[in-house]
Design a protein around this nucleic acid. Sequence first.
RNA 1: GGGCGGUUAGCUCAGUUGGUUCAGAGCAUCUGCCUUACAAGCAGAGGGUCGACGGUUCGAAUCCGCCACCGCCCACCA
Length: 813
Amino acid sequence: MDGKNACWVPGTDHASIATESKVVAKLKAQGIRKEDIGREEFLKHAWEWKEEHGGIILQQLKKLGCSCDWDRTRFTMEPALSEAVINTFVYFYKKGWIYKGVRMVNWDPEALTAVSDDEVIHKDTKSHFYHLKYFISDGNGKPTDKYLVIATTRPETIMADAAICVNPKDERHFWLKGKKVLIPLINREIPVIEDDYVEMDFGTGCLKVTPAHDVHDYEIGLRHNLPVLEIIDDHGKLNEKAQILVGEDRFVARKKIVKMLEESGNLVKTEEYISPVGYSERTDAVIEPKLSAQWFLKMEKLAATALETVESGRTNFIPEKYVNTYRHWMENARDWCISRQLWWGQRIPAYYLPDGSYVVEATPEEALKAAQAKNPALTMADLKQDEDVLDTWFSSWLWPISVFDPEKPGHPDHKPNKDLAYYYPTNDLVTGPDIIFFWVARMIMAGEEFMGKEPFSNVYFTGIVRDKIGRKMSKTLGNSPNPLDLIDNYGADAVRIGMLLCSSAGNDIFYDEAQIKQGAAFCNKIWNSYRLVKGFQVADIPQAPAAKLAIEWFAAKLSETITQVEDHYSKFRISDALMAIYKLFWDDYCSWYLEAIKPAYGQPVDPETYKVTLSYFEALLKLIHPVMPFITEELWQDIAERREGETIMYAASPKPQAYNPTVLENFNLVAEAVNGVRSVRNQKNIAPKENLHLVIKESSFPNVSLIEKMAGVNVEMLPEFGDAQAVGFMVRTHEMFVKMDGLVNVEEEIEKAEKDLEHQQKFLQGVRAKLSNERFVANAPAAVIENERKKEADALSKIESLEAKIKSLKKTN
RNA sequence: GGGCGGUUAGCUCAGUUGGUUCAGAGCAUCUGCCUUACAAGCAGAGGGUCGACGGUUCGAAUCCGCCACCGCCCACCA
């Protein structure tokens, strides 16, 4: 409507973890395990699932009337986009930023699979804190009589210990420096090391470091180059490397080893202890931290660039507060683990050779070529592709590029196609704050890396919709309304405007059906106002003076509001913009304007008024159309004869016209007078039909006919203020009187004005004090000083007019 | 435990550099109206010591300090 090429690309990602677990569950219900049918067969089921469910969200968007570029609909696993993903993997690998490393995963020993962090439930669990003696070695693997004590909840892992760690600042343990100690029962010698990670006041201040079976220990191990010894197998049983208790389940082993330690004299004491333990959401088995080989992407340079993009303001966050969150993440970004032990996704293009080495190439053919460069005898049959797939975010981070030109990323020399060149960088991303790191940050990284430019100028973070009492929508709670049902009940426009009116950026939305009802009521209001307007009979009669004034006023009001709305939109203050239009339509247009121009029952309106009234209505329709597309299109088509294919969607949005602000000021006086009369009617319980007289001072008061029409009064004009008393009146404000007996007295008005005056004088004093402060004048920016001077002048004129008012009121009294 | 944000009317939220018109909006509530577009409506009204305490200032919802409570993200201490 502003004549711009607005492109909204719809699409979906393949949600590898969620989708795979759904498909696995579905197959399981049929008694099928994915391992039994194999990767290819499994993927067929996954695609079926995708076809069935992937379209739902797009259907909802359509039903909501979202005007996406549907022809451009994309899916992250469609061939072209998958190719882009593979190319970028190869690109980063050859750049040296992708490497194979080890990482702790949450291993479910019952399901025999790694589970994601989200699928781990931490429950406070009663356990024991075992204090164990580790004897100092004499240097030849023999214990001395000196020892240290460590506290552990997992004594069954001591055979995997790689070191004992103390805090370097801990004076109690200075004597241990450089010493070696012996693991109880198996007498293996391990060093004592120092690391800040150890808390001095927790436990005994000595920590046993077991890199293979604890996340933190693994990291300490990396820092100190400790060997990693894995003694627990996939089923949660001790293996041969444990030397003792081989084949025992970890919990059985724990009980047994405690007894053995007690017998050997290594157990100092046992404490009751409650600690959070991770359980598998699916099997309720205790999660075992397990090391596994994973692929990583180095974050250092990508994160630094992405941070700069936002800090420099090339990409703005709305609301701004999320920049802090973003910075915190970017400054502490750890390398991105991009491999997933799943089948649904882009398979990692690493091909293993029989000798255990591997090559990374985009296609098997290229891989074979690369492999043959190492060993010419190799054939395709010798290559074994990596079993894992890539993290879904590793494909969706390319979205702003790949939806336009999938060939671009990963081919830095490739020229962007026409679409990409035109649309990139894009303007606005709208998304939830919960994926700032997963998606937003990574799109910025990919954009900077592959395009050398930020992918979007603005990121608008919506709130998350919660229920009335603040809980997240969830299926198990059953507190999530089906949007399609709401649309059926109230209409899409009602749902849209109802939700948006109470959504400010970054604030969660507490869903309440009352909001949708408000939206529905607004739809009705629009509809009914159109019925009135369209039902007018037009006759060639002169224009009523009240109508003329109302037309002039609404033109100004419309322009004023459009200016405000444009300002709100430019600052992404959506709910403010919509509220301004809502009030313009309901309060100004329906309640004031239409009432002012409405002819008496059975009477026609003049052609000019009718024409203008319709044009105002059309302007309002266009203003609200982006959020209420259906009702506005329907009415717009009916206002006038439209050509085939003509649509409000392409109608030019209304622009503000120059107007005289006096018109608005005059109208405010009218409104004040009318409201005064109405208030009196209400307080005194006077029927609308009963005639009243409003007495006003100035014979030149401009909008008398409008006051008469809106308030249902006869206006009498008095040449002089002082005469008013003779009539019997009440003072409202602004030199207007409602002809009623003894409602408000002049004394009160005087008192109020005097209080105002006092306040103004005090204010003036303050401003002058500031202006006479040399330091302020010397340091403050010119604009600020200017502003202060303006305040001073304003206050002076206010004081002047208040003094005049008081004088006048006193005379009246 | 670490980081970030919040606390303004019954509810959801505005409140731009401290200052006048700053204590506001919508919804809800109450009162009166079946007035010929609309009772899913019209008109009017009430309602807040701006979380607590202290400080800076002529002046604080706004700036500073501390506390309380709430929310989100990260970690889930051997």
